[in-house]
């Protein structure tokens, strides 16, 4: 059952990343990888909230496996982020490459912390 939840979540999260990436790029022509940045920030916010809720007893471990390990895990990606950064650097676009690393990490961590705090307040309160 646990494996099934993770498989199902992964089968939803990865296509959601692909579709979001296309939608963001279709609206915004840029060398900066806004699509991947967006999914990583949103996924970190949701997983932060889910983890905060789990720790405060406001969510079940099955929901955690489906939405957290499965959907959020597959929606967000480190491999895409790292390859984009490499390509930008190799093309001499050092500023977007450095900005991608700094912004992804800072916004991702900030989003996870925000989701975590808000969920704990809501569940506890």
């Amino acid at each position: 059952m646990n494996w099934l939840l993770v498989l199902l979540g992964g089968a939803v999260g990865a296509p959601l990343r692909y579709l979001t990436d296309r939608a963001v790029q279709a609206r915004h022509d840029s060398v900066f990888p806004w699509g991947t940045f967006t999914v990583n920030a949103v996924g970190s916010l949701v997983l932060g909230a889910l983890t905060g809720a789990l720790l405060a007893g406001g969510a079940s471990s099955r929901v955690g496996l489906l939405l957290g390990t499965g959907v959020c895990g597959a929606l967000t990606t480190y491999s895409t982020f790292s390859y984009e950064t490499l390509r930008l650097a190799e093309r001499g676009r050092w500023l977007p490459a450095a900005a991608n690393v700094a912004a992804s990490v800072l916004v991702g961590l900030g989003a996870a912390a925000l989701g975590w705090r808000v969920a704990r307040l809501l569940v506890a309160g």
Partner: peptide, 17 residues
């Protein structure tokens, strides 16, 4: 699919928090 689903940014961020 495989590599994007295997790696994760959200778990990384939440583990730091």
């Amino acid at each position: 699919g495989v590599l994007g689903g295997f790696t994760t940014f959200s778990t990384y961020a939440v583990d730091v928090v």
